[in-house]
Design a protein around this nucleic acid. Structure first.
Length: 1136
RNA sequence: AGUCUCGUAGCUCAGGUGGUUAGAGCGCUACACUGAUAAUGUAGAGGUCCGCAGUUCGAGUCUGCGCGGGACUACCA
C-alpha cells in the first residue's frame, strides 16, 4: 500500500485502505522470513496443541466453501499459537476412490467394462495416480492466499506405499483382534454386469426410473395353532394373510411375513374375486377401504353368486399386530425349503407402515435389506432361489409354468431370447391347458401371478408404477442380492464408541449427541469391500481350502513371497507398488503348501482417511514418538457432512485399535449457500470463485465475514454485500482509528508505549474506562475462543471497536490529541490508544491474520521490508496479552454507559427541537434514583456536557415533587408471590395516583384491597419510573429520564455564533489545504451579529482557528462567503 | 421414510433458567455533522417471532401436532 508520509516518521500513514494490496505484501514478507515455520519452531515442544488436517481430494477445484472450513481450522490453530502452544499442521491429500476413477474414465472416454480390455489395470491406475493431483497447484495457491497455515511441504498422501503399509498394519491388527471378517449382506447387484453397486453409483442421475411392474397381493394360508386359534370360529374357516409385493419373483423365496406391532389389523369375511371361494383375510384396518368399498358391507352373503362384480364382506374382528406374532402359515410356493431357521411365521417389523399395500410385508431375506435384517433377528432362514445371473435356480421346478432357469427380470433377455421364450411359453401353456393361445410374452412375475390366481392364493393383482434402481453401466434393473463382503466388526466395540463419544467436545453439541450419537446407537458393521481398481488393496490372501493370511507390512509380504518362491508356487516379485495389479499377481503359499490368491477387494476410502493419525507418520514402522505426541488430536474441524464420514472413521479406528478417542474437540461447520439460500452449483451459475473474492475483497474480509455472520455450524448464506459491509465497518473503522493515531503521534512523537499495561497516574477517567472495557473484551474473547465460539468472539471485537473505541473513546478524546504541546496527559492518551489497537490486533489475528499483522507492524515500526531474520516481529509470533484484572472497573463502565445513554437522549431532544449541537444550551435536569447514581453521574458529567454542548447538569432527587412518575408491576418478582392474583394487582397498581406512588416509595410497601382480600405489595415488586417534568422538554428510556432547558439566551446565541464561525473557518482551512499547524490571519466584512460574537469571544475564536489576527473590515476584494446561522459573511483567510 | 437441524424486520443475525413496549447491524427515508471525512451521528418507517393446540396468572422462550427449508442415512412390501 502506498505510504503517504516519509519513511522517517514514527508511524506510517497511507492514502487509503487497500486490503488486497496489504495481503500481498504480508504474504511476501511471511514467506521471506519463514514466519509460519517460526510460529511452530519457536514454541516449546512440551506444550502442544494437536491438530489433524482432514485430507481434501485434489482432483476437484477448491471452492469458496473450502475457505470457510479452512478459516475455522486456521483460526483455532493461530489462537492456540498466540497462547503459546506449538501447533504443528501436516497437510494431507485424499487420493483414492470412485470420483477419481470416474474422472479418469471421463477423460479417457472409457467405461469400467473397458478396464482390462481396452486399457490395462496398470495403465488405468497410472492415470488415476496422475489425475488425482491435478489441481494441487490451485489448492496450494488458495491455501496460501487465504492465509491458511498448514505444512504443504510435507503432506501425507494416501496412495503412497508408506501410507498404505500403515493401513495394512492396522488391518492386520483388526484381523488379529477378530474385528475383520467376511460376511454377506444384501446389496444392490447388477446381474447383467455381474457386480455389486455402491449407493453412490445408485445415486447417479437417471439410475432411478419409473417402471410398471405386475404387483400381487398374495394370500398366505394360516395354520391353525395355539397362536392363531382366535382367528378361527369353525373347522372349515379358510383364513389368509394378505401381503403385497411389487416383485412377485421373490415370492418363491418368501420365508416370513412382517406386521407392525402397534398397527391395528382386521379379519374380514369375503369371497375371492378370482375363484369365488369363501375366504377370511387379515389386513391392516387403515387399508381396508382400498379393497372393500363401504357400500358392499351391506350386501347379503347368501345371495352372492360366482362372477358378481360386487363382493360382500364383513369385518369379523380386529386386533393388534402383536397378536399375530408367531402365527404360522403354509409356504406359498413350496419348491424348496430353507435349510436353517424356523421359517413361515409372522414376525414383527419396525419398518412396516400402512401407507400402501396391506400393512403386512412379505419377507424374502435374500432380496431385501430390511428383510434380511428382520429375518436374522427373528431366526428365520432364507431361500435364495435366484442365481448370480439373475435366473431362477433349478429348484424352482414347476410342472406347469416355465420358471426354472428363467431370468427374473424380462429386461435381462435379448430380443431373440425373449421371442424364443415366448414361443415356448405359448406351446407349453397351451399343452397344459392353461392358456390356449398366448398373445404375448409373460414375465416371471406374470407367470407367478397367474399361478397364484389359479391356486386360490391371489387376492388381487395390478400394474403398478414405481421408481426402481437401474445399473448405470448396463441400463438394466438392479436386484438386491446377498453378496460377500469384508466387514469391520464395529458392533463389537459399540459400547466403547458410545462411551468415548461422550468425552468428545462437539460443536455444536447436538451433532455429537444427536446425529452422531444416534448413528452410533444404530451401528451396523462397516462394510469395507469395494469392487474397484484404484484404492488400497485388502491384504488378505487365501485359497479354496479355507486357508487365509492377512499381511501387515511390506517386509512380511517379502518374506511370504520368498516362502512361496521356495515352495514353488510363485516367481520372485519385486514390490514397487502396493496397488493393483501388482499385488493381485502375487501368489503366496499356505501352511499346508497350497497357493493362495489375494481376495480381489479394495477397501473403502474412508478407511484411508480415518487412519491418518497413524498413517501420516508411517506408524508403527517409524516415528513412534512423534505419533504418541500427536495422538489424539486436540482439535479437528470439517463440514457436518463428515459426521458419518471422517469423524466416524477416525473414531472407530481409534476406539477399535487404541481404545481411545481420536480427537477431543471437533467443530462441524454447516454448508455454504448462495445469498438466496440455494446450494451453489455450476448449473445454477451461482458459484462464488474464491480467488476472485480474495483478489477483490481480501482474504481477511472474507474470513471475518464468514466467521462473524453466523455460527459456523449453521448453514451460511454467502452474500458479497455482507463482505463489503465488513470491509467498510470493521476494517475501515480500524484503519481510520489507526490513521488518527498515526497522524497526531507523528506530530507529537510520544514515547513508545509499554508492551504490558501498567498503572499510570496520568490516565484520565476515559482512559481508565476504555482500558477497563478492553480488559473485559480480552477476557470475553479469550473465553469464546477457548469454547470454540469464534462468532461470539468476532462480534465482541466488532462491538468494542465500533461502539467503545472509535465512537466514544476517540470521538470524546479528539481535542486531547490535537490541542497543545506534547504533555504527560497526551502521553497517557497515546499509550491508551496504542494499547487498545495492539490488543485488538492480537485478538482479531486468528480470524484476520493479514490485517492484524499489518496493524501490529505499523505500531511496532515494522515496514515489512526487512528480511533480516533476527528482527522478525510478527503478531503471529507474539504472545497474547494477559488480562489485567486491576484495570477492570465495573462502576466506571456503568457510569460511562449512563453518560452515553444520557447523551443519546439529549441529542435526540436537540434534534426534535432542531437546535444544532454547536448552539450551547444552559441546563440539563436529571432525576436520579439514588445518591449513588448521582455520584456516578457527577464523575462523567464533563463528558456529557461537552458532548452535548450544555453548561450544567442539575440533579433532582426523589423527594422533589416536580417529577411525575409512573408505576407498573415488576412481573418477575410479583409473579413469584402473587400467582393468579397478578391480574388484579396489575389493575390496582395501574390506578395508582402520584400520591400512592410516593407512599409506596416512602413506606416500602402498600396494602392493596383486592375484592375484599388484602395484599401487601412490596416496593421491589413494582417498577417506578419518572415520566415527565412539567415545563421542561423531557425524554426517557429504560428508566433514565433527562430534561433539557431549550431557552437560548442572548449570551448563548452569541456563543453559538462564535462556534459557528469557528466551524466555517475550519472548513475554509481544510478547503484551502492549509496544514494543521498553520497560523492564519482572518478578515471579515463588518456585520452586527458577528461583531457581537467576536467581541465577546475573540480569544476563544482565535485560539480555535489558530488565528494571529481577526480583523473587521469594510470591504474585501476577494472573499469567501460563508453562512453563519441566519447571516451571510464575507471572510478572507490567509496563512501568515 | 428415518435421524438431526433451522424458521424472529426487506436482508444477515441477537434474544441464560417463561415476566407483559421483542433487539442490533445493513438497507430504505429524512435530517445533521465535517481537523478520523470515500468516514460519522440522530431520528423515522418497517414484526400475526412459520401455523395450530396445550401447560401457565403470563409463551418468541416449555410440550404436542403440523407446514416449509437444509443436511445426512436408507431405499422398503
Amino acid at each position: 500500500m502506498k505510504r503517504k508520509n516519509s519513511e522517517k516518521a514514527l508511524y506510517p500513514e497511507f492514502e487509503q485502505l487497500n486490503m488486497p494490496s496489504i495481503e500481498k505484501e504480508i504474504l511476501q514478507w511471511w514467506k521471506e522470513n519463514n514466519v509460519f515455520e517460526r510460529s511452530i519452531s519457536e514454541r516449546s515442544e512440551d506444550k502442544r496443541f494437536v491438530f489433524y488436517e482432514g485430507p481434501p481430494s485434489a482432483n476437484g477445484k477448491p471452492g469458496i466453501h473450502h475457505v470457510m472450513g479452512r478459516t475455522i481450522k486456521d483460526l483455532f490453530c493461530r489462537y492456540k499459537t498466540l497462547q503459546g502452544f506449538r501447533v504443528e499442521r501436516k497437510a494431507g491429500w485424499d487420493t483414492h476412490g470412485l470420483p477419481v476413477e470416474l474422472n479418469v474414465e471421463k477423460q479417457l472416454g472409457i467405461t469400467k467394462a473397458d478396464i482390462g480390455t481396452k486399457i490395462s489395470v496398470e495403465e488405468y491406475n497410472k492415470h488415476c495416480r496422475e489425475d488425482v493431483m491435478r489441481y494441487t497447484d490451485l489448492w496450494n495457491e488458495l491455501t496460501e492466499k487465504m492465509g491458511y497455515w498448514v505444512d504443504l511441504k510435507n503432506p501425507y498422501v494416501t496412495y503412497e506405499n508408506d501410507y498404505i503399509e500403515t493401513l495394512w498394519a492396522l488391518l492386520k491388527k483388526l484381523y488379529e483382534k477378530g474385528l475383520l471378517y467376511e460376511g454377506y449382506t444384501i446389496q444392490p447387484y447388477s446381474p447383467a454386469a455381474g457386480t455389486g453397486l455402491s449407493s453412490h453409483e445408485l445415486n447417479q442421475p437417471g439410475c432411478y426410473r419409473n417402471v410398471k411392474d405386475a404387483t400381487a397381493i398374495a394370500m398366505f394360508k394360516v395354520v391353525r395353532s395355539k397362536e392363531s386359534d382366535f382367528l378361527f370360529k369353525t373347522e372349515s374357516d379358510d383364513v389368509r394373510i394378505l401381503a403385497w409385493t411389487t416383485t412377485p419373483w421373490t415370492l418363491p423365496s418368501n420365508t416370513a411375513l412382517a406386521v407392525g406391532s402397534g398397527i391395528e389389523y382386521v379379519l374380514v369375511k369375503t369371497f375371492n374375486a378370482f375363484t369365488f371361494k369363501p375366504i377370511q383375510v387379515v389386513l391392516a384396518k387403515d387399508l381396508m377401504a382400498q379393497y372393500f368399498p363401504k357400500e358392499n358391507e351391506e350386501l347379503d352373503f347368501e345371495s352372492y353368486k360366482e362372477g358378481d362384480k360386487k363382493i360382500p364382506y364383513k369385518v369379523l374382528q380386529s386386533f393388534k399386530g402383536s397378536d399375530l406374532k408367531d402365527i404360522r402359515y403354509e409356504q406359498l410356493l413350496p419348491y424348496t425349503q430353507p435349510e436353517d431357521g424356523d421359517a413361515f411365521r409372522v414376525i414383527i417389523g419396525d419398518f412396516v407402515t400402512t401407507t400402501d399395500g396391506t400393512g403386512i410385508v412379505h419377507i424374502a431375506p435374500s432380496f431385501g435389506s430390511d428383510d434380511f435384517r428382520v429375518a436374522k433377528q427373528n431366526g428365520i432362514g432364507s431361500l435364495t432361489l435366484v442365481d448370480r445371473q439373475g435366473k431362477f435356480v433349478d429348484a424352482v421346478n414347476d410342472e406347469v409354468f416355465p420358471l426354472q432357469n428363467r431370468y427374473v427380470k424380462e429386461d435381462y433377455y435379448t430380443a431373440e431370447e425373449k421371442q424364443a421364450e415366448y414361443e415356448y411359453q405359448k406351446m407349453i401353456l397351451s399343452e397344459k391347458g392353461v392358456i390356449p393361445n398366448l398373445k404375448s410374452f409373460m414375465s416371471v412375475d406374470d407367470l407367478i401371478v397367474l399361478k397364484l390366481k389359479l391356486e386360490n392364493k391371489l387376492f388381487k393383482t395390478e400394474k403398478y408404477e414405481h421408481s426402481y434402481p437401474h445399473c448405470w453401466r448396463t441400463d438394466k434393473p438392479v436386484i438386491y442380492y446377498p453378496l460377500d463382503s469384508w466387514f469391520i466388526k464395529t458392533t463389537a466395540v459399540k459400547n466403547r464408541l458410545i462411551e468415548l463419544n461422550k468425552t468428545i467436545n462437539w460443536k455444536p453439541a447436538h451433532t455429537g449427541e444427536g446425529r452422531f450419537g444416534q448413528w452410533l446407537e444404530n451401528l451396523v458393521d462397516w462394510n469395507l469391500s469395494r469392487s474397484r481398481y484404484w484404492g488400497t488393496p485388502l491384504p488378505i490372501w487365501r485359497n479354496n481350502s479355507g486357508e487365509e493370511k492377512c499381511i501387515g507390512s511390506v517386509a512380511e509380504l517379502k518374506l511370504e513371497i520368498e516362502k512361496a518362491v521356495q515352495a514353488g508356487v510363485s516367481k520372485p516379485t519385486e514390490i514397487t507398488d502396493l496397488h493393483k495389479p501388482i499385488v493381485d499377481e502375487i501368489v503366496l503359499v499356505s501352511e499346508t503348501g497350497k497357493p493362495m490368491q489375494r481376495v480381489p477387494d479394495l477397501i473403502d476410502v474412508w478407511f484411508d482417511s480415518g487412519a491418518m493419525p497413524y498413517a501420516q507418520w508411517h506408524y508403527p514402522f517409524k516415528n513412534e514418538n512423534v505419533f504418541k505426541q500427536n495422538f489424539p488430536a486436540d482439535f479437528i474441524a470439517e463440514g457436518v457432512d463428515q459426521t458419518r464420514g471422517w469423524f466416524f472413521t477416525l473414531h472407530v479406528l481409534a476406539v477399535a485399535l487404541f481404545d481411545s478417542v481420536a480427537y477431543k474437540n471437533v467443530v462441524s461447520n454447516g454448508l455454504l449457500l448462495d445469498k438466496n439460500g440455494n446450494k451453489m452449483s455450476k448449473r445454477l451459475g451461482n458459484v462464488i470463485d474464491p480467488f476472485d473474492t480474495i483478489e477483490n475483497y481480501s482474504a481477511d474480509a472474507t474470513r471475518w465475514y464468514m466467521i462473524r455472520n453466523s455460527d459456523p455450524w449453521d448453514n451460511m448464506k454467502f452474500d458479497i454485500e455482507g463482505l463489503q459491509e465488513v470491509q467498510r465497518s470493521l476494517f475501515g473503522t480500524l484503519y481510520n482509528t489507526y490513521s488518527f493515531f498515526a497522524l497526531y503521534a507523528n506530530i507529537d512523537k510520544p514515547a513508545k508505549a509499554p508492551n504490558v499495561l501498567v498503572e499510570n497516574k496520568n490516565f484520565v477517567e476515559l482512559d481508565r474506562w476504555i482500558l477497563s472495557r478492553l480488559q473485559t473484551l480480552l477476557k470475553e474473547t479469550t473465553a469464546f475462543y477457548e469454547d470454540f465460539e469464534p462468532t461470539k468472539a468476532a462480534r465482541a471485537i466488532e462491538k468494542f471497536m465500533d461502539e467503545d473505541l472509535s465512537n466514544w473513546y476517540v470521538r470524546l478524546n479528539r481535542r486531547r490529541f490535537w490541542k497543545g504541546e506534547m504533555s504527560e496527559d497526551k502521553q497517557a492518551a497515546y499509550d491508551t490508544l496504542y494499547f487498545c489497537l495492539n490488543t485488538v490486533a492480537q485478538l482479531m489475528s486468528p480470524v484476520a491474520p493479514f490485517f492484524s499483522e499489518w496493524l501490529f507492524g505499523n505500531l511496532h515500526g515494522n515496514s515489512f521490508q526487512s528480511t533480516s531474520a533476527d528482527t522478525v516481529n510478527s503478531i503471529h509470533l507474539s504472545l497474547l496479552s494477559k488480562a489485567n484484572n486491576s484495570f477492570v472497573n465495573s462502576d466506571l463502565e456503568e457510569r460511562m454507559e449512563l453518560a452515553q445513554r444520557a447523551c443519546s437522549l439529549i441529542l435526540s431532544l436537540r434534534k426534535k427541537e432542531k437546535i444544532k449541537v454547536r448552539q450551547p444550551l444552559n441546563k440539563i435536569l436529571i432525576p436520579v434514583l439514588s445518591n449513588t447514581q448521582e455520584q456516578q453521574f457527577k464523575k462523567v458529567e464533563s463528558y456529557i456536557l461537552s458532548e452535548v454542548n450544555v453548561k450544567e447538569i442539575e440533579y433532582i432527587s426523589d423527594a422533589s415533587d416536580i417529577v411525575k412518575k409512573k408505576i407498573k408491576p415488576n412481573f418477575r418478582e410479583l409473579g413469584k408471590r402473587a400467582g393468579q392474583k397478578i391480574k388484579a394487582v396489575q389493575q390496582a397498581v395501574a390506578a395508582f395516583t402520584q400520591e400512592d406512588i410516593s407512599r409506596i416509595e416512602r413506606e416500602k410497601q402498600y396494602t392493596l384491597n383486592l375484592d375484599g382480600e388484602e395484599f401487601l405489595l412490596q416496593l421491589n415488586e413494582v417498577e417506578i419510573q419518572t415520566e415527565d417534568i412539567p415545563g421542561w422538554l423531557v425524554v426517557s428510556d429504560a428508566g433514565l429520564t433527562v430534561a433539557l432547558d431549550v431557552t437560548i439566551t442572548d449570551d448563548l446565541r452569541k456563543e453559538g455564533n462564535a462556534r459557528e464561525f469557528i466551524n466555517k473557518v475550519q472548513n475554509l482551512r481544510k478547503d484551502k489545504n492549509f496544514q494543521v499547524l498553520d497560523r492564519i490571519k482572518v478578515s471579515v466584512v463588518k456585520n452586527g451579529i458577528f461583531e457581537e460574537a467576536l467581541n465577546q469571544f475573540y480569544d476563544y475564536i482565535s485560539n480555535e482557528i489558530l488565528a494571529k489576527q481577526i480583523s473587521l473590515v469594510e470591504t474585501l476584494d476577494t472573499a469567501d462567503e460563508v453562512q453563519m446561522n441566519e447571516e451571510m459573511l464575507q471572510v478572507k483567510v490567509e496563512v501568515v
